[in-house]
Nucleic acid binder design. Structure first.
Length: 811
RNA sequence: GCCGGCAUGGUGGAAUGGCAGACACGGCAGACUCAAAAUCUGCUGUCCGCAAGGAUGUGUGGGUUCAAGUCCCACUGCCGGCACCA
């Protein structure tokens, strides 16, 4: 048999879908709320490398689902766009002088073409790129709303700096102390930055995770990242000075064991606390710490370092003077940047105290510990809970209770209070690069920072001669005098524009809202459109965005919700992570490993339909799947077989009862499995069914039509062609999904298996309505079974109608 | 170290507590063919056996149950995330 002409068929139907704008969708009020679906893919960064296997997997999942929903009478919004700001295009510009906008357009055109070549249907009327000024005008607008709510502020805290990308990085973009993008070790740099106050939403970002249907690992990662911990803020007086030091601790019950304090080298009071004798050592340590990269401060510093400031604090519970040290094991950016050290009960403090010979006092004993073991200096650190010792009047109190009691006591004295701390840091939002949204702010000598009037948006990126980042913490925009110099919107005096740009994440924070109403000139999206579609019913993408995009987008969405601009407090109702497609070597695909797969090759070789079905046949969508083309053969054979069915005569004859039952069982299984996105088992069932139909010389329409319809989400080009051959003028996209009759899914006669002591000994056929007694009688009559029952006592008989009979025997 | 996830034939995988291995790849045998390809049919977890048949089998060890891949407890291995967060 000749291979079916997939190239011709696929081209033909893609042209037709394009011409028909097959997936254009409107806010048709005729569809009730529960018959509307917003299905979203994580939109791609249009890289020069084109679509990769992961994109194809992602978009196949949603395309199949959308086509299935549409055939089941849903109004389905399935949009596509491009997340096109970012470094690759800019780096290419630096190398070649090509404007990033030009590169972006070429790449976007290529992506769109590749997406269409897979038969994926999107409402292309809604397409946009985050780099379109019509789009980023609204990104800037949302930024202004954040600014006006006090959620954007300037800071000159030391930040993560990538010396290779020459830009600041958000915490989320630093992986193991390296730049997530180029793997250069990150250093710290103190430059003026714009920061978004995401921590103001930490509690809601955490608690609202309970409202969404997301994979548990993603929720866990977000919870982890937000890192809520409850404890106490405690105030320590400084001996002989008016300064007070505040610390955060989750173990206020160990206060009596606090034998010294440690400040981060960046702590504001360090220079004042350094005594003349210690000043040189302290200054040197602070300078050295500032030079260290994050990697050096964490990975390499198993061995603790630190310097005594010369000053002492006073422990508020016992009035003892305790030395104040500085060390880079204390992070400036968490809590108050200072800790009380309890070496007996904290591993890190223990290591530090041992190294510098600081006193160690045990204040928690394991419950039930004998007195002898508590004598003398502890020999090891004990960080578990227990009961208080050496803690004055509180001795004997269990840890949990003591925490509450001491916190209340401190509060009464004005020396402390209950406190909650988050690991989550505010979001470093400015980049010292060219290819991003300019921040719509000016710096006026008289008025300070002034937001641009909304009417002046978009603030467009100016043309530049050189895209090269200066590396000094200024973006290339700073060199364009004609752009930078402006007038203050408030006083009209001279002012300079903000030259930082936004990070790539900005554009993806709200793109799902723009798809609702992409050409709106007066709002980021009209309220009617938001109400019609939101929230997103299904969001599919890779797990790599668990704490970046997905956290940022939730944050922006909540701000918009608080402003009354969206109708829900969470944007994505249900999230599905497709499993990574690995290289044939089981490793992540990457250019450097040379194990990447180019979808175009397979489209040319076996066709888009075969590639779609194959990727979904590899296994469950969430599972990691190593790429192996071995299985492709089976899928191609299946599609060939379906194509060959199209050559058989189709009749209106009544079908064979057995086949009719198989047909209805197949429709049921494929419907259920497609609806739940268990595509692999749906495909397997269609394989079984098509193999049966292939044995017939002529196809009864009643058996054949449903197969073609079920094929439509999976192999849409082939299904269209077969549908047309059946005499239909309308696209199968609009056709109604086949129905099944539950009565026809049941066989009249079922095979019942017989076990003796749980071991399979035979089977027999019985009518579906046979009673328990009859089943037992029939079971006993099976020769093999009778043999195993002979001469033994039957203690118990379990009969599961339609399934099995189990004899429990003795002797 | 902490938090997730996973573990089934030679391979990808399937299985509301009820016949483990559907479907597919690969392999073996056969049909068609001058021959090959393509296609079709049958067999294909492992062990013992000529066979009938039997035993055994879902990472390991226990448990619950008439019955466990599935539920419970303990562990091992692999993958992912976080990691001096006080």
């Amino acid at each position: 048999m000749a291979k079916y002409p997939f190239t011709d068929i696929e081209k033909k139907w893609q042209a037709r879908w394009d011409a028909d704008r097959a997936w254009r969708v409107t806010e048709d009020p005729a569809y009730p709320k529960d018959k509307r679906a917003y299905v979203l893919d994580m939109f791609p960064y249009p890289s020069g490398a084109g679509l990769h296997a992961g994109h194809v997997e992602n978009y196949t999942i949603t395309d199949m689902y959308c086509r299935y929903l549409r055939m089941n009478g849903y109004n389905v919004l399935h949009p596509m766009g491009f997340d096109a700001f970012g470094l690759p295009a800019e780096n290419y510009a630096i190398k070649t002088g090509t404007h990033p906008a030009v590169t972006t357009k070429v790449n976007v055109d290529h992506f769109r073409e590749q997406i269409k070549s897979m038969g994926f249907l999107y409402d292309w009327d809604r397409e946009f790129s985050t780099t379109d000024d019509e789009y980023y005008a609204w990104t800037q607008w949302i930024f202004l709303q954040l600014y006006k709510r006090g959620l954007a502020y300037e800071s000159d805290m030391p930040i993560n700096w990538c010396p290779s990308c020459k830009t600041g990085l958000a915490n989320e973009e630093v992986v193991n102390g390296e730049c997530d993008r180029c793997h250069t070790p990150v250093t710290r740099k103190r430059i003026r930055q714009w920061v978004l106050r995401i921590t103001a939403y930490a509690d809601r970002l955490l608690s609202d995770l309970d409202k969404v249907n997301w994979p548990e690992p993603v929720k866990a990662m977000q919870r982890n990242w937000i890192g809520r911990s409850e404890g106490a803020q405690v105030v320590f007086a400084v001996d002989g000075m008016s300064e007070r030091l505040e610390v955060f601790t989750t173990r206020p019950d160990t206060l009596f064991g606090a034998t010294y304090m440690v400040l981060a080298p960046e702590h504001a009071l360090v220079s004042r606390l350094a005594t003349p004798a210690q000043k040189a050592a302290v200054d040197q340590y602070v300078a050295a710490a500032a030079m260290k990269s994050d990697l050096e401060r964490t990975e390499l510093s198993k061995d603790k370092t630190g310097v005594f400031t010369g000053s002492y604090a006073v422990n508020p519970v016992n009035g003892r003077k305790i030395p104040i040290w500085i060390s880079d094991y204390v992070l400036a950016s968490y809590g108050t940047g200072a800790i009380m050290a309890v070496p007996a009960h904290d591993e890190r403090d223990w290591a530090f105290a041992k190294k510098f010979g600081l006193p160690i006092v045990r204040v928690v004993a394991p419950s039930g510990a004998d007195a002898d073991s508590l004598r003398g200096e502890p020999v090891e650190c004990h960080s578990e809970e227990g009961v208080a010792v050496n803690s004055g009047d509180w001795d004997g109190m269990p840890t949990a209770e003591f925490k509450k009691a001491i916190t209340a006591w401190l509060e009464g004295k004005g020396l402390g209070k209950l406190a909650v701390n988050y690991k989550l840091r505010d979001w470093l939002f400015s980049r010292q690069r060219y290819w991003g949204e300019p921040m719509p702010l000016v710096h006026c000598e008289r008025c300070g920072v002034v937001p641009l009037p909304e009417s002046e948006l978009p603030l467009r990126l100016p043309e530049v001669d050189s895209y090269e980042p200066s590396g000094t913490g200024e973006s290339p925009l700073a060199t364009i005098e004609s752009w930078v110099n402006t007038t203050c919107p408030v006083c009209g005096g001279p002012a300079r524009r903000e030259t930082n740009t936004m990070p790539q994440w900005a554009g993806s924070c709200w793109y799902y809202l723009r798809f609702l109403d992409p050409r709106n000139k007066t709002a980021f999206a009209g309220k009617a459109a938001v109400d019609y579609w939101m929230p997103v019913d299904l969001y599919v993408g890779g797990v790599e965005h668990a704490v970046l995009h997905l956290l940022y987008a939730r944050f922006w969405h909540k701000v918009l919700f608080d402003l009354g601009l969206v109708n829900t407090d969470e944007p994505f109702l249900r999230l599905v992570n497709q499993g990574q497609i690995l290289g044939t070597d089981g490793q992540r695909m990457s250019k450097s490993r040379g194990n990447t797969v180019n979808p175009d090759d397979y489209v040319a070789e076996v066709g888009a339909d075969a590639l779609r079905v194959f990727i979904m046949f590899m296994g469950p969508i969430e599972a990691e799947k190593p790429w192996s083309t071995a299985g492709l053969t089976g899928v191609s054979r299946f599609l060939e077989r379906c194509w060959a069915l199209g050559d058989k005569p189709v009749t209106d004859a009544a079908p064979d009862q057995g086949l009719l039952r198989l047909c209805h069982k197949t429709v049921r299984k494929v419907s259920e499995d497609t609806g739940s996105m268990n595509y692999n088992t749906a495909i397997s069932q269609m394989m079984v069914y098509s193999a049966e139909l292939a044995k017939l010389d002529a196809l009864p329409r009643e058996l054949y039509d449903p197969l073609v319809l079920m094929l439509a989400p999976y192999a849409p080009h082939l299904a269209e062609e077969l549908w047309e051959k059946l005499g239909h003028a309308d696209s199968i996209v609009e056709a109604a999904w086949p129905r099944w009759d539950p009565a026809l899914c049941e066989d009249d006669e079922l095979t019942v298996v017989v076990q003796v002591n749980g071991k399979l000994r035979g089977d027999f056929k019985a009518g579906k309505d046979a009673g328990k007694d009859e089943l037992e009688r029939l079971a006993r009559a099976v020769p093999k079974v009778a043999e195993h029952l002979a001469g033994k006592d039957v203690a118990k008989v379990i009969v599961v109608p339609g399934k099995l009979v189990n004899f429990v025997v003795k002797g």
